[in-house]
């Protein structure tokens, strides 16, 4: 089937990207000024400790050799090991991922409908107060630092009003409601920027579509204004919007690093920040790489959804 062929083609295109990503992550470690082993060991470490780390990380070998070892380990699913906790990167990620995934997905579930509805509404009522209000909100959304508004939100909703927990994460296994209650505030704060971004994008996509000849055809058929938007414009609007969902997921996960810090949530973001502050570079390197792989995978999925939305791609 053609769709399968397209999928395989995309998979083929993803392989060089994965390779590039792996090599980039490798060189990240070598950006460290001076002797990486000494930097990682910290200023108080003795020569012996530095030597131990150097051997542990294989830094005593030549760079090409190290790169090959790194790639070889990756091919076997070994993303490295923390030098602080003696825990493998993948294990650490597996422990933390549910938190970040929950946060990101809840934020995503807020972003997509709200952003699209706002954008389409603004386009439908263009040059009216609805348009101005939505666009002003969207502009504020993309201009305000998320962590700052998150702190203000905590002061209002958690400290002053006591409606929502100020911090922490409750696993889904303890029930959907407690899980959601803990997530709702951080996810909303995380989604704020993306909602603004998506609303702006959906507005211009809808305006583009509304200018198309087939919209005029629909009107000439006697289709009502709302039906024209819902049936004829909306799916065409979705085409460019779907392509940005990958970016939105990526940005949400990036933003979760900061939001996890505000709400003291034990997710991947905190893992990375902690690893950086403790100079646990193998951990930094491994997590970054794993996230990048995740994104290559997400973009593949977006591509499949895209195929489903746009029949022109499905059949070509």
């Amino acid at each position: 089937m053609r769709m399968l062929r397209r999928l395989l083609l995309r998979l083929g295109q993803a392989i060089p990207v994965i390779l590039v990503v792996a090599v980039l992550a490798f060189f990240l470690m070598h950006l460290l000024p001076g002797d990486p082993a000494a930097v990682i060991a910290g200023p108080e470490a003795g020569a012996e400790a530095v030597e131990r780390i150097r051997r542990q990380l294989g830094l005593d070998r030549s760079i090409p050799e190290q790169l090959l070892v790194w790639l070889w380990h990756l091919a076997q699913g070994d993303f490295g090991t923390s030098i602080i906790h003696n825990q493998s990167v993948l294990q650490a990620l597996a422990d933390r991922m549910p938190v970040t995934a929950s946060l990101t997905l809840v934020a995503f579930a807020m972003t997509i409908p709200i952003g699209i509805v706002l954008g389409v509404a603004a386009a439908k009522f263009r040059n009216t107060w609805v348009d101005s209000a939505v666009m002003l909100m969207a502009l504020i959304g993309v201009s305000v630092p998320g962590f700052w508004i998150a702190i203000l939100s905590v002061i209002l909703f958690s400290v002053t009003l006591g409606w929502l927990p100020a911090s922490g994460y409750v696993p889904l296994s303890e029930g959907v409601w407690p899980w959601l209650r803990a997530l709702i505030q951080p996810a909303a704060m995380l989604a704020l920027f993306q909602i603004g971004f998506l609303a702006r994008m959906a507005r211009s996509a809808t305006l583009d579509v509304l200018d198309q000849d087939y919209i005029r055809t629909a009107r000439a058929k006697g289709v009502s204004e709302w039906r024209t938007i819902a049936k004829h414009a909306f799916r065409n609007t979705l085409i460019p919007v779907v392509t940005t969902t990958g970016i939105i997921l990526s940005l949400l996960m990036g933003g979760s690093v900061v939001i996890e810090q505000v709400f003291a949530m034990p997710g991947v973001g905190r893992l990375i920040v902690q690893a950086i502050l403790t100079r646990d570079y193998p951990m930094v390197q491994g997590t970054l790489l794993a996230l990048a792989f995740l994104f290559v995978a997400i973009n593949l999925m977006v591509d499949i959804v895209y195929t489903w939305v746009d029949p022109r791609v499905r059949y070509d």
Binding site: S250, V258, L288
Partner: peptide
């Protein structure tokens, strides 16, 4: 493929 902010965090951390 790296989320921009995470890439920046990694690089900034590495470079001091």
């Amino acid at each position: 493929a790296f989320p921009a902010i995470i890439l920046a965090i990694g690089l900034a951390a590495a470079m001091g």
